[in-house]
Write a protein that binds this DNA or RNA. Structure first.
Length: 639
RNA sequence: GGCCCCGUAGUUCAAUGGAUAGAAUAGAAGUUUCCUAAACUUUAGAUGCAGGUUCGAUUCCUGCCGGGGCUACCA
């Protein structure tokens, strides 16, 4: 911020005069003054003692003295230990406020001229979206908005994993057990319907495996005495995981049974059918291809509904079925050029041992591609389609950190200069109190269900507080939506993306305290003031600012926060961290609420003060609204 | 086994190497003739353990303990 720069420059000048030694740019550490001390800006003088050749405390004292004498920026100072606390004078704050109020581009930094592609969501098309996807989408969408505000051109994209064995599983189950069910016939949302068949496949598949294992066991003397071998394995596995003792005999049996299970997994008729279907799909057999299209279509329309509720969107969609072949070509080309190597069985690998990693498979021995192969293809395709993009940001969970490390290294090896600029926006899992979400154990928190719950809770709260007087039905619904989703988005975005976080479904997301609705409420409060101001014609600031004689401390601290906004956007963009914005919006709202409590705006007799406070409130509302917009949260006029 | 991440109030989250470790919730006590009490004020409560570097360590380094992840011819 300009203000900060100016202060630092004054400090450098003063230091030069008093101690005769020049400080470099980064040597002045300026930080916000803690609220128990007087002042707004604090210079940490410990590191300066080295250059001033005197103790930190004297350094601070002399520096403060000099600053007051020579600069018109500061009104007073105090020294606590080696900390120099500075207070800016009235005119300075007035001009800061003036600058913010006149800013033609509030909340938007100068263009960097850079183009960035941000990928997020990218779900598989075999099951509905869940809580984890919510964090992913809100994060990716918000980071995109933040990057835009920071002056970049952004392309929001996702890759849809529409191809592969997983979708074939749903298809097999639907063919076998579906009896022609469609979203229309059963009224089920398309993604839910397909997800159900995926689950069904898994259940039936498990059954077949268990049967096969039992059969193998029956014919093997070593284990034929076991009644339910499959169940037994699970028990022993559980024991091992809990660190309990397992006898040698049990371990021996376990080993035998594990080979049985592996064999059964490969030989179960259902998985054979799914694999067969995948081959038929790859050869584009019309019946299979049509069914694949139809079921994917169901999923897409289901996803579209969910995305709409979530309030996220994309500029462009990529489909794995379109990109996986390109990846394969790239790998083969790399093989020719000696970047990759082939093993005897025909599989293609990359050797990354020079980078401290191991070898990684790129093409199976049967020539089919793996996950990595497709990602190579997709990345290259994107840069071909958008030659101007400087980098790609991948919003993907942190369990794939290794994968992306490898991907970027491979792209680099293939000679793509932009590979170095690619970034894996890695975020932590959302845990439940019971641990990780597992679809098999039915502990997945469904995205649609959760959002609906949030809307219901918002409605309940609002009605309890009796705050829907004068609302039409549509307005009320809009409010519940904004509050419910605001609470949810804020909850997921206020946490550092890198960290894993906890979600307790039994303890519903709060609407009080450090929450989205708290900030929304502050905005609604200010809106009420602005409405009233318009009514009585106090909208125009006129020359009141110049005639203002003093500012209250709480007003100064709000102005300081307002002036921090752009710096926060910069920081959030730099770290890909919406939580910076979330924390900022909260601090601003909280500080304004203090002002609101302390000062009764319309009881003020001095017109200049009154007009200033209205303009000041408007600027706060505007900043809150913009900050929240970066998080994808709408702020209401009334609530 | 190897590699990576995380351990902060009862709980959920903060703290570019800086002051007496901040919030929120749950607990205790207050504030409504006054612009929206989804608010505000007061109070009590925490850095896993042991070393090291530093004027100064929640932050950096080492070891230990605890939790999670990756290490598939799965995606």
């Amino acid at each position: 911020m300009i203000l900060e720069k100016e202060i630092i420059s004054k400090i450098k000048d003063a230091f030069q005069v008093v101690f005769g030694s020049e400080l470099a740019e980064g040597q002045v550490t300026l930080q916000p003054t803690r609220k128990e001390f007087d002042g707004t800006h604090t210079v940490v003088c410990f590191p300066l003692a080295r250059f001033s050749k005197t103790g930190p405390e004297q350094t601070a004292e002399k520096l403060g003295e000099q600053l007051i004498e020579t600069s018109d920026l500061f009104s007073r100072y105090n020294v606590v230990k080696g900390f120099l606390n500075l207070s800016l004078n009235h005119e300075c704050w007035i001009s800061v406020f003036q600058g913010l109020n006149d800013d033609p581009n509030p909340g938007k930094l100068e263009s960097t001229g850079q183009e960035v592609m941000v990928e997020y969501s990218s779900p598989n098309t075999n099951k509905p979206l869940h809580l984890g996807h919510l964090r992913n989408n809100f994060l990716g969408w918000s980071v995109s908005e933040i990057l835009k505000a920071a002056g970049n051109t952004v392309h929001k994209v996702q890759i849809i994993n529409d191809r592969g064995i997983h979708i074939c599983k749903s298809m097999v189950a639907w063919l076998k057990f579906g009896e022609g069910e469609t979203p229309e016939s059963s009224g089920k949302k398309g993604d839910k319907l397909v997800g159900d068949y995926y689950v069904r496949f898994d259940q039936e598949y498990k059954k077949q495996i268990a049967e096969l294992v039992e059969d193998y066991a029956k014919h093997d003397d070593r284990v034929s005495s076991l009644k339910k071998p499959f169940h037994w394995v699970n028990q022993i596995d559980k024991k091992l995981k809990e660190g309990k003792e397992v006898s040698d005999e049990e371990q021996g049996i376990l080993l035998i049974l594990k080979t049985f299970i592996k064999k059964a997994e490969a030989n179960a008729p259902l998985i054979q059918e799914a694999k067969d279907l995948l081959l038929r799909w790859e050869s584009k057999e019309p019946a299979v291809y049509d069914l694949w299209k139809q079921m994917n279509g169901w999923v897409y329309s289901g996803f579209d509904t969910t995305y709409e509720t979530m309030g996220v969107d994309f500029d462009k969609l990529y489909y794995e079925s379109d990109t996986y072949l390109l990846g394969k070509d790239e790998v083969l080309r790399g093989l020719e050029r000696g970047v990759f190597f082939k093993k005897e069985d025909g599989s293609v690998w990359v050797d990354l041992s020079d980078k401290g990693l191991d070898q990684k498979l790129l093409l199976r021995s049967d020539g089919t591609s793996v996950y990595m192969t497709q990602d190579i293809g997709t990345a290259i395709l994107r840069f071909r389609g958008f030659p101007a993009i400087a980098r790609q940001v991948y919003t993907v969970g942190n369990e794939q950190e290794y994968h992306f490390k490898v991907l970027f290294l491979i792209l680099e090896k293939l000679g793509y200069a932009w590979a170095k600029e690619c970034y894996h926006l890695s975020y932590g899992m959302v845990d439940l109190p019971s641990g990780k979400m597992k679809s098999r154990e039915g502990t997945v928190v469904d995205a649609d269900d959760l959002m609906q719950e949030m809307l219901d809770t918002a409605e309940e709260h609002t009605k309890e507080l009796g705050k829907i007087e004068g609302f039409t039905d549509d307005q009320a619904r809009e409010l519940y939506y904004n509050l419910g989703l605001g609470a949810l988005k804020y909850f997921l975005l206020k946490v550092d993306p890198k960290k894993r976080m906890l979600f307790d479904p039994n303890e519903s997301i709060q609407f009080q305290g450090h929450t989205g609705p708290f900030i929304q409420y502050t905005h609604a409060r200010i809106s009420a003031i602005l409405r009233k101001a318009t009514q009585i014609g106090l909208d125009d600031l006129g020359d009141s600012l110049a005639k203002l004689e003093n500012l209250e401390p709480v007003e100064i601290s709000v102005i300081k926060l307002l002036s921090d906004f752009k710096e926060k956007i910069k920081e959030a963009a730099h770290h890909y961290s919406p939580d910076v914005i979330a924390q900022y919006a909260y601090e601003l709202a909280k500080e304004y609420n203090r002002f609101y409590q302390e000062i009764s705006i319309f009881n003020e007799e001095n017109t200049h003060k009154l007009k200033f406070r209205i303009a000041f409130s408007r600027l706060t509302a505007q900043t809150i609204s913009q900050a929240m917009a970066l998080l994808g949260i709408k702020v209401p006029e009334r609530m």
